[in-house]
Computed example of a mutant assay.
Amino acid sequence: MAITSKWRQHIEAWQRSDLSQAEYCAEQQINVRTFTTRLSDYRKLPAPGSSALIPVQIEQAPTAAIIFTDAQGHRLELPASISASWVAELL
Rank of each mutant, 00 (worst) to 15 (best):
Y24Q: 10
A22W: 02
Q57N: 11
V56S: 02
E89I: 05
I11F: 06
A65Q: 15
Q28K: 15
S5V: 08
T37N: 13
L19F: 09
E27A: 14
T4Y: 04
A22G: 09
V56Y: 08
L45R: 07
K6F: 10
L90S: 14
P55E: 08
K6S: 03
V87C: 07
R43W: 02
L19V: 02
A2M: 10
D18Y: 06
Q15C: 07
A26G: 11
R43E: 13
Q60S: 09
E23W: 01
V87E: 01
T4E: 05
E23Q: 13
E12V: 12
L76T: 15
R33H: 15
A71V: 11
W7P: 02
A80S: 14
E89T: 12
Q15E: 13
Q28N: 07
T36L: 04
A61I: 03
I66C: 00
A47E: 15
R38K: 14
P46Y: 00
P55S: 09
I30T: 02
R8H: 03
R43K: 15
E23S: 06
P55A: 06
S81D: 11
T37W: 08
N31A: 14
A52R: 13
S83E: 13
G73A: 11
M1S: 11
G49P: 04
H10K: 02
W14A: 12
R16E: 10
H74L: 03
E27T: 13
S81E: 10
S51I: 14
R16W: 06
A84L: 15
W14I: 03
P62C: 02
E77G: 12
A84Q: 14
T69D: 00
A2G: 11
T63K: 11
A47L: 15
A64V: 08
A84V: 09
S20A: 04
L45Y: 00
Q15T: 04
A26V: 09
D41F: 13
I82D: 08
